Amino acid sequence: MSAYNEIATQLKTRLADLLERAEVIEDDLRHPLDADSSEQAVDLADDEALEGVDEVLRAEIQQIRYALARIENDTYGSCATCGEDIGLDRLKARPIATRCIKHAD
């Protein structure tokens, strides 16, 4: 794991930030609708946009947790397709990468 300590620290920092953002969004989504029907329409549109953002955040949170688990169990840095090493430069640029450049989507 020592080779990936810096990446793990960055991932943990990013995870904390995303969890905080997701909590703020979820708190905002729990607010009651305004009594005015025109305001309700605006609130519903805003909520729909927030739900989309929350979904993206949750997906990234899941990817980060998966990367941290791979670091913990010493499978981080191996391509999920071919088993070859994922280059350190790629991992630094995209720490949630599960595939080498050759097999990247």
Score class of each variant (00 low, 15 high):
residue 52 G to R: 05
residue 63 Q to M: 09
residue 48 E to L: 09
residue 20 E to H: 11
residue 28 D to V: 05
residue 36 D to L: 07
residue 1 M to P: 11
residue 41 A to M: 12
residue 45 A to E: 15
residue 15 L to K: 09
residue 75 T to F: 06
residue 77 G to H: 03
residue 62 Q to N: 09
residue 34 D to T: 05
residue 68 L to R: 07
residue 40 Q to H: 04
residue 46 D to P: 00
residue 97 A to N: 03
residue 35 A to H: 10
residue 75 T to D: 12
residue 20 E to C: 02
residue 15 L to M: 07
residue 46 D to Q: 12
residue 14 R to Q: 14
residue 81 T to D: 14
residue 2 S to L: 11
residue 70 R to Y: 03
residue 6 E to R: 13
residue 94 R to W: 07
residue 12 K to N: 13
residue 38 S to A: 11
residue 105 D to T: 09
residue 102 K to E: 13
residue 62 Q to V: 07
residue 89 D to R: 11
residue 87 G to S: 15
residue 17 D to F: 08
residue 14 R to S: 08
residue 43 D to W: 01
residue 83 G to A: 06
residue 81 T to Y: 05
residue 11 L to D: 03
residue 50 L to H: 08
residue 77 G to C: 06
residue 33 L to N: 10
residue 13 T to N: 11
residue 71 I to G: 06
residue 104 A to G: 01
residue 67 A to I: 08
residue 31 H to I: 06
residue 85 D to V: 07
residue 34 D to N: 12
residue 94 R to K: 09
residue 102 K to F: 04
residue 7 I to W: 02
residue 47 D to A: 14
residue 58 R to A: 12
residue 61 I to P: 01
residue 32 P to H: 06
residue 12 K to Y: 05
residue 43 D to F: 04
residue 90 R to V: 09
residue 72 E to W: 05
residue 86 I to T: 01
residue 41 A to K: 15
residue 49 A to L: 15
residue 66 Y to I: 02
residue 81 T to S: 14
residue 64 I to F: 06
residue 87 G to L: 06
residue 75 T to Y: 05
residue 73 N to T: 09
residue 11 L to S: 03
residue 23 E to C: 01
residue 84 E to Q: 14
residue 79 C to I: 04
residue 58 R to V: 09
residue 92 K to F: 05
residue 87 G to I: 05
residue 45 A to Y: 10
residue 23 E to F: 04
residue 73 N to V: 08
residue 73 N to H: 12
residue 99 R to T: 12
residue 6 E to P: 00
residue 40 Q to R: 15
residue 13 T to F: 08
residue 71 I to V: 15
residue 93 A to T: 02
residue 74 D to Q: 12
residue 26 E to V: 01
residue 8 A to I: 03
residue 101 I to N: 03
residue 18 L to A: 03
residue 28 D to R: 12
residue 6 E to W: 02
residue 105 D to R: 12
residue 104 A to K: 14
residue 54 D to E: 10
residue 30 R to I: 00
residue 64 I to Q: 02
residue 94 R to E: 05
residue 72 E to T: 09
residue 47 D to H: 12
residue 46 D to E: 13
residue 41 A to E: 15
residue 6 E to K: 14
residue 17 D to T: 12
residue 44 L to I: 14
residue 54 D to W: 08
residue 66 Y to G: 08
residue 89 D to M: 09
residue 57 L to V: 00
residue 79 C to E: 04
residue 55 E to V: 01
